[in-house]
Design a protein around this nucleic acid. Structure first.
Lengths: 201, 201, 201, 201
DNA sequence: AATGAATGAGGCTTCATTCAT
DNA sequence: GATGAATGAAGCCTCATTCAT
């Protein structure tokens, strides 16, 4: 009797709660990308999501809660894959670092505008960033203990790298075309920073 | 009885134009640091500067003009010293790079919150940032031609470094105490990135 | 006990859209009459209409849109009846002119202050006035072709008459008492201007 | 020692009071013509007059006083010449009416924008208009007593004519080119209204 | 659960007027 | 007499949030 496993109709008046949540969060992301955070209003979010203004407040307590929810979700997505690769013993530490870089560059190039808005223009990005920091820190420590890296001050180096890779990503004009060049370039620089053998040696 | 040749009292009703300008810009900087850019209103700027709201508009055409003026001033300060050192032939390229890093780290540590707000949260930072970019690019090219650096992709490397040094600065808890450590740490990483001999070799 | 099928109380919190629109437009008209257009502020309009300031903007995009809406409505009312009489072949051209005058004088006497403010003090009255101009022009041409009028320069005469009838209307002290006198007086003068036989011949 | 009978330097820092007054009133008139009354600010008046804002308040108590002064002056100019011609017994009443019309049309065509702004957009025009009203009323009465005019209701007719002649003036596109046509046209219509023999008979 | 009309605090900006110099 | 920096009330408009339906 329940139609729950049929493909959901795209814009029905009644939707399961998680579908509504997703519609609204997607609308926020779209609008941030298209018009920036100054133009982000609940009214426009509601329009874009195809719901009434009041409905937004059924799912999120306030505008800030809405933004925070999106930030959390985006960071989850960003950490998911690299975390799983970190402890794979079949590849060297430098290769794991390369993988992390590749993943981050890829994500950043695809979503840089959104990330920029979410974590630079809007506040509160410190906490989710912690996840990425831990990941990279464990990688540097592991590589150092294994003798593959030479890292003097891991904490400082993590902070350095965490900011560094964003630069070339944002400066790229055409994300599609530049990914290969940016990825390999940043990988090489990361290797230099951690004192690993260059990939092309 | 007449105090006419004493330095003017700090908060007289009439002030020379440049003093007023400074009062207002200082108020903006203070408020940005204390409450962030969302809470920056002309009303609060005026209160903090000790003038009426209308007075702000005697010195700046709009809120945006006010912010832009502060951005410009801050960047001027940031580029002043490094630019003068760039072309000094008596020191090696790596030392020049060290000097640039020292200067930037110093400035960033002292004003990092303000800079973050001004150039990341607020828009329009692209242009003044260009000055720093040019400076670093010339340095990388010079060092490479002189055979001191090995830089594969100067453009990408510049973007990388331009973002990188900010990380350790922002992460430092106590700016005063950490400057020495952050400076030398970042200098070492910059040297690695450009392929220069390590400072401690 | 339930009053649900009685006509809604006049000042409920929720009103059908057209009722709200009317409340607001009425408030504008009242205020223009009472205090002139310099004193017309959105704040006062809202107070008078019994709504919040923001509510005004739910129905009109801007202050100018509010004024334009009132202008349009008033002109519609003013052109409605005369237009229908213009092409009635059962009456002579002079009688049609008389009817037009009677209608305009009537409207002007009843709303003269409002019209004055709307179309003289406030700008933008040129377009709606065009409707009245066309009407009168067609009448003059028709009467001339029929040999009832002698009009040398129809364009100029239309402009002349369009302004002329307003004078006696505005000068009347008591609109109620003077309508008969003003109407017949202006009718006679219009006839003279178009070279028609006097009504009392 | 006094340079008072030398031609005044155009923009000296010190000026005789009446010269300053004139500079300021001229500035008001210019600005009303160029930018309309919404854009009329004391600041711009002062700039245009070449004086400081405070100086305007040495000559006029308030912005309203400034406008009223200009209104009074303009009407004085408009009544000056016709008044002198009114009682000339060597010409017929219809000719005197023609003269009045010629004068008014001329003035209106040359200054219509200013007059429109001064007496229609801005309030308070009722009183100065009284002078023109008296003039025309005496003319109608004189002509009627002399048997040249047939005017049923002089008061009403005056109000009618006083508004009427403005219409063709404002509608004229090019004041220079149209004056002849507007003047003779309005003269003919005025004659019709007062029941005088047509000028071309 | 969903709506959207209504609210009202608060933002930016303008400008008539004052007053110390 | 002249100045113009300073004031602050007031205007227009936006938008996060509420609540009766």
């Amino acid at each position: 009797m329940s139609p729950s496993n049929e493909p959901a109709v795209n814009s029905g008046r009644f939707q399961p709660p998680d579908v509504r949540r997703r519609q609204i969060l997607t609308a926020v992301a779209d609008l941030l990308l298209e018009t920036g955070h100054d133009a982000l209003t609940i009214s426009r979010v509601a329009d874009r999501a195809g719901v009434a203004k009041g409905t937004v407040y059924l799912y999120f307590d306030s505008k800030q809660a809405l933004i925070s929810a999106l930030q959390a979700e985006v960071w989850d997505r960003m950490l998911e894959k690299p975390a799983s690769l970190l402890d794979d013993p079949t590849v060297g530490w430098a290769e794991r670092l390369d993988t992390l870089v590749a993943e981050w560059v890829h994500t950043e190039l695809r979503h840089r505008q959104l990330y920029h808005v979410l974590f630079h223009e809007l506040g509160g990005g410190a906490e989710p960033l912690g996840g990425a920091r831990d990941l990279l820190l464990r990688l540097l420590r592991g590589g150092t203990e294994a003798g593959e890296f030479t890292v003097g001050d891991p904490d400082l180096t993590v902070d350095f790298l965490l900011h560094a890779y964003v630069g070339p990503c944002h400066h790229a004009v055409d994300p599609e075309a530049s990914e290969e060049r940016v990825r390999s370039g940043v990988q090489a620089l990361f290797r230099r920073v951690v004192g690993a053998a260059d990939v092309r040696t």
